[in-house]
Write a protein that binds this DNA or RNA. Structure first.
Lengths: 212, 212, 212, 212
DNA sequence: AATGAATGAGATTTCATTCAT
DNA sequence: TATGAATGAAATCTCATTCAT
């Protein structure tokens, strides 16, 4: 019998999350002080620690929400495009959506503090395992779609699906990293080139031909 | 008229660099305290500050040395392989060299603290411009090789060379990032898949064919 | 809605002030480390910084309290002496009070670190303006008393009141400075001579006569 | 048999003194780094320490030179004014010379770092005794002139000459202090008022009359 | 549950002085 | 003598987290 209702707690939690997202975006992860979140959320230090064990926990909550969004993206695209979509187009749309989506306000900032978080804490045991879970979850999504593409006769990769998954996830992150961390302009042509390369991989362009 | 010779000073500088490289690798960039470098190098605090203005300057020196190494890598490969090497093979070798090279002791650690450095400090003006210079330098190297491949009739990319450069540099970083930061196993197959994808891009696999 | 009452906070603030006053007196301003104040007050480093932004702020608080005391001194003397006091006597008492008061325990030490503070930091903008405010406040007090003395027909200075104020404040400080900073014995006769000189000024001893 | 002549050494010493004077004036005593003096003098760190044991010794050398100047001031005034000068005029000239002299370039800066030096180091034994010597030397000069003024029938102080000396030296310092440390404007009227007051003291304005 | 004052272990950099060359 | 690289003991302020109220 909680003294305040679950609804109230959820509202409060969201207030905190929103404030954290805002401040992390503004200052980056390490430069954000708990006091900044206190100031922006209007909730007291103790209040925040009631709902989140640490600054880290706050990030992880945000990261999980973002992960859901990204995992849902294939479904969203499917829904938007309707049934006439083939798998190649699905992937193309996905890459464009993610990379062009970086220009939406706030998105780069989130990517920025996320990269910062992982690279700062990647050595900690519990962070390692968390990263692994996230990767696996995402890889599953990807693999199942690729497999469907293969079943549909559209994809014919010459290498195992999981390895393709590694490449796709990694390189997509790399495209984002160079843009948001190294601050290099990301052009439309680069996005197209990237998509082409990934599609080649999935479709299985004949190596011999390609490589001479 | 220096009190001690330039040689001695160079030796001392290297002592410091070596110690910093060791400690950064061991603890990561932000977790490294100047005291750690002092302890490991056996050189006094003031002594280190005689040669390097800050921890940041120490990192940048290391990063510059690594950049040289990476920029030289194409030449090294050419020299090793002799003249019979074609450009496709040159790139394949390059990708393998970089990615398999991660298994050499110390290499991952260096990548790790480098990612950490850039993601932590990427917002600072002078770091931004440094990142940009490094990117441009590297892009130049890459572009000139791709252009030679085109002249040789081996490459026929369907997109501008600079955009290809962005994709290659970014995605290669991404491959490394996922492995060293997210701690995901990097398989031989993934390296191969990655190389295939990049080669498709350079050779210009016919899009229509590829994408249906 | 403070977690602890305002009273408790005031007590804590005073604890810190007292400790700072003690340590400044003991070691001087620049030789006092925050750690000394921490040790002597028994309050944690962070606790002190909760109440005072810096060592400087701590000094200024002390200095303001002392300023109040000194500004009140004329009133105190009036109250003690009753109505039969004339303005000449008021000033004489004031000079004696201040200069003989230096022999009270702790007073010299306070003067000492105050001189140190001002001479060390006098070039900083915000310190300059602070010094100016303090001077003006004090000058006002002095001027209004001198003016009353004039109205009462007791004083007849031959120069503007503000300039007299400058001389009185400056020279009184000088008397203190020589004693506490240069460590020169301050005799009763010197105090008397000083008072005579200042009184001449206020009363307006005929110049011709004086100067031949 | 010195390897380099005394002349060369004297030149070198002066080079250092000049540089120190310049930098102390520019930055104040505590803010001056030995490296600043090295940079400005063009003489190496070791070189400076060959001639002066410490930063403190450097200040003391400068202070001694200035003391000589100030001690000579009475003679200079006498010489300039010729024999028709009486003692009252001598003192008046002296006060004006010192106080108006503050407007000469560099003079305030010297006063500033001198006050800083003494107030920072006044607690050290050897500094205390140095200050005492300087005071005595100066007091002697002053006393002997006052005595001559008495002999000449011009002065008739009602208090011992040494106490008058204390008052004159102290208050003159105080006038300077308020101007250069507290940054308060020093007016012509204030200087006149100050001179009047001191002259009253020397001439011995009848107390009863003055004080009612 | 909520508050926010208190904690205290750091972390970077400075600089007078020394001394090997 | 002259040089200037090396020393290393400080010293200020930060901030995630706790816990008495």
């Amino acid at each position: 019998m909680p003294k305040i209702s679950h609804d109230k707690m959820a509202i409060r939690k969201n207030q905190i999350i929103d404030a954290a997202l805002y401040v992390f975006s503004d200052k980056g992860y390490s430069q954000t002080k708990m006091d900044d979140i206190v100031a922006y959320s209007g909730i007291s230090k103790g209040g925040i620690y009631t709902y989140f064990d640490s600054k880290e926990a706050l990030f992880i909550e945000i990261a999980n929400q973002r992960l859901q969004l990204r995992r849902n993206l294939f479904d969203v695209i499917k829904a938007e495009m309707g049934e006439q979509l083939n798998y190649s187009q699905l992937f193309r749309h996905y890459f464009y959506r993610v990379l062009e989506g970086l220009e939406q306000p706030g998105t780069q900032a989130i990517a920025r503090f996320s990269f910062e978080f992982w690279s700062t804490l990647s050595k900690e045991k519990h962070i390692k395992s968390l990263a692994y879970q996230r990767y696996q979850a995402f890889l599953n999504d990807l693999s199942s779609i690729i497999l469907k593409g293969i079943e549909a006769g559209e994809f014919a990769p010459s290498l195992p699906v999981d390895d393709l998954g590694y490449v796709i996830l990694s390189t997509l992150d790399g495209m984002i990293h160079t843009h948001v961390i190294m601050n290099i302009q990301l052009t439309h042509n680069a996005i197209e080139a990237y998509s082409d390369a990934m599609l080649c991989l999935l479709i299985g362009c004949p190596k011999k031909e390609c490589d001479l």
